[in-house]
Measured scan of single mutants.
Amino acid sequence: MQNSHSGVNQLGGVFVNGRPLPDSTRQKIVELAHSGARPCDISRILQVSNGCVSKILGRYYETGSIRPRAIGGSKPRVATPEVVSKIAQYKRECPSIFAWEIRDRLLSEGVCTNDNIPSVSSINRVLRNLASEKQQMGADGMYDKLRMLNGQTGSWGTRPGWYPGTSVPGQPTQDGCQQQEGGGENTNSISSNGEDSDEAQMRLQLKRKLQRNRTSFTQEQIEALEKEFERTHYPDVFARERLAAKIDLPEARIQVWFSNRRAKWRREEKLRNQRRQASNTPSHIPISSSFSTSVYQPIPQPTTPVSSFTSGSMLGRTDTALTNTYSALPPMPSFTMANNLPMQPPVPSQTSSYSCMLPTSPSVNGRSYDTYTPPHMQTHMNSQPMGTSGTTSTGLISPGVSVPVQVPGSEPDMSQYWPRLQ
Rank of each mutant, 00 (worst) to 15 (best):
N3E: 10
H5Y: 09
H5F: 08
H5W: 08
G7E: 09
G7Y: 08
L11K: 06
L11V: 06
L11N: 06
G12V: 00
G13V: 01
V14Y: 13
V14L: 09
L21V: 04
D23F: 09
Q27N: 08
K28N: 08
I29T: 03
I29E: 03
I29Q: 00
I29F: 01
V30Q: 05
E31P: 01
E31D: 13
L32G: 01
A33D: 07
H34E: 14
H34Q: 10
H34C: 11
S35K: 10
G36Q: 05
G36M: 04
G36N: 08
R38N: 03
R38Y: 03
P39N: 15
P39I: 11
C40M: 06
C40L: 05
I42C: 03
S43T: 04
L46R: 02
L46V: 09
Q47V: 02
V48C: 07
V48R: 01
V48L: 04
S49A: 02
G51M: 03
G51S: 15
V53C: 01
S54P: 00
L57I: 08
L57K: 03
G58M: 14
R59W: 05
Y61L: 07
E62N: 06
E62K: 14
E62P: 00
T63I: 02
S65P: 02
I66R: 05
R67Q: 12
P68W: 00
R69K: 14
I71G: 10
G72W: 01
G72A: 01
K75R: 09
P76C: 07
P76H: 03
V78T: 00
V78E: 00
T80R: 07
P81K: 10
P81I: 07
V83M: 03
V84N: 07
K86H: 14
K86I: 07
K86R: 14
K86N: 11
K86P: 03
I87Y: 02
A88N: 12
Q89M: 09
Q89V: 08
Y90F: 14
Y90Q: 07
Y90W: 11
Y90E: 07
Y90K: 07
K91G: 15
K91P: 01
E93S: 08
C94A: 13
C94D: 09
P95Q: 14
I97A: 13
I97T: 11
I97S: 14
I97H: 09
F98R: 14
F98N: 04
A99D: 02
W100N: 07
E101A: 10
E101W: 06
I102D: 00
L106K: 01
L107N: 14
E109L: 10
V111R: 10
T113P: 12
N116W: 08
I117L: 14
I117S: 11
I117N: 15
V120S: 07
S121I: 01
S122Q: 00
R125F: 06
L127Q: 07
N129I: 09
L130R: 14
L130E: 11
A131W: 07
S132H: 12
E133N: 13
E133R: 15
M137C: 15
G138M: 12
G138W: 10
A139D: 12
A139R: 13
D140S: 12
G141Q: 13
M142C: 12
D144Q: 12
K145H: 14
R147L: 14
M148D: 14
M148Y: 14
L149F: 11
L149V: 13
L149R: 15
N150V: 03
N150A: 13
